[in-house]
Design a protein around this nucleic acid. Structure first.
Lengths: 220, 220
DNA sequence: GTGGTACCGTACGGTACGGTTCGGCACTAA
DNA sequence: TTAGTGCCGAACCGTACCGTACGGTACCAC
């Protein structure tokens, strides 16, 4: 659902660009956040980055290639938040989940994430839209990697129980995000309660334990 | 989050258009679903609807006015699914919730809903984007009207318990939709499990009762 | 018939954008 | 010094689109 938390062992795999090219991509990203997809023209990017259009086309081949490069760049920029740690107590496991929920809320509400998701969604209708798939892959990467491992560790330690890991994760996601993401994508603003991510995260994790927790160790 | 279930007592308030104009809007909607926002040009709409561009501009004033009219038209097309019924038994209440969940899944996965949401999201970054707010209003209308009344009725009858109605609804929404909507918006396809809306709806409502149900009457 | 109105089909002006080309500058290597 | 390379800035081309204007047609009122 986002790109800013992609976990990959090799940072070069996603950002195989030179320093100068990364600067250009950063400029493009700022331009996108500031003015939306309409402002992301090749001339505008070249102007903002103090480079020529010729270089843009030499480096990224195409406008679509440039957009894909922006996505890849952003994915490689903010990477893993730290290695997975095996929780030893129920409280530690719960804290990990709360932290994950908090991170997810913060990431999805970020300017860059919203701008890139809007861009990908806006052109997802066209048949040649590989951008949406790209965003999904990176988002799925992050989610599958971090949350999946976390849930599995919790289950191995006997704090929670579920049949299908994917299903459990999606429920966790739903409890955390609710209609939050779509509303932000549509331009809505958050009310005071929703802006308190800490509280929201704790409530969501409480509910998750109520659904999947084992009363003996990690339940209510 | 969608427009296809707007509930309004006065159908004319949202579709104050002539028969001919509604035909044109219907053509525009089909065009949007077929080719995405890129295909929704004034010339294309005029061609598809067998009308002149001059008429488009006389009727809707502007291209943005035309898009807003499309949204309003779609909102007024599929209206309330029936008056709210006071559930008398816990089983009936649960059936109502399952039906609501099923409807929500079907609506949000519909072609028209996805196309319009993509359109609104794609241009939600610009400051003059009233389209996202329009979609939100209509979606919120539907949600607040139907689900809110349903939950309130269930609480009045003692089947569920909650402090904040808005909060309870958002949890319900999260349990039903999860990451379903955003993934579809990004162009993802559903796996077999997710395409079984009936099963998904029942599971979501089971989970909702586990969180908000009163064990005596409506709980697990 | 005559004027008015609403409409269609088409063509046009203006603009914006994607992509290409060209001249020029700085730097490097022989 | 000369040739080559990488890049910038700017001009350019073809295209697509928005919004408007114009000619022609059907219908209605009087």
């Amino acid at each position: 659902m986002t790109l800013t938390l992609a976990i990959d062992s090799d940072p070069q795999a996603y950002s195989a660009f030179t320093e100068r090219q990364n600067d250009v991509l950063e400029s493009a990203l700022r331009l996108l956040v500031k003015g939306g997809d309409k402002a992301l023209t090749t001339a505008g990017i070249a102007r903002a980055a103090n480079c020529s259009k010729e270089s843009l086309y030499r480096w990224f081949g195409d406008r679509d290639g440039l957009l894909a490069a922006v996505v890849s760049y952003q994915a490689s920029k903010v990477r893993a938040l730290g290695p997975g740690v095996m929780p030893e107590t129920a409280a530690a496991f719960r804290a990990h989940l709360v932290r994950f929920a908090n991170d997810l809320l913060n990431v999805l509400s970020g300017d860059m994430s919203l701008a890139l998701n809007r861009l990908a969604i806006g052109q997802a209708s066209r048949s040649d839209a590989h951008l949406g798939g790209l965003v999904l892959d990176r988002g799925r990467n992050m989610i599958g990697s971090r949350a999946g491992a976390l849930l599995e560790a919790g289950r191995a330690c006997g704090f929670i129980e579920y049949d299908d890991a994917n299903d459990a994760f999606r429920t966790l996601y739903g409890l955390i995000i609710r209609d939050f993401h779509v509303r932000l994508l549509l331009g809505d603003t958050l009310d005071a309660d929703e802006a308190a991510f800490d509280k929201q995260a704790q409530v969501a994790i409480d509910q998750f334990f109520k659904l999947y927790g084992l009363p003996a160790k990690g339940g209510v």
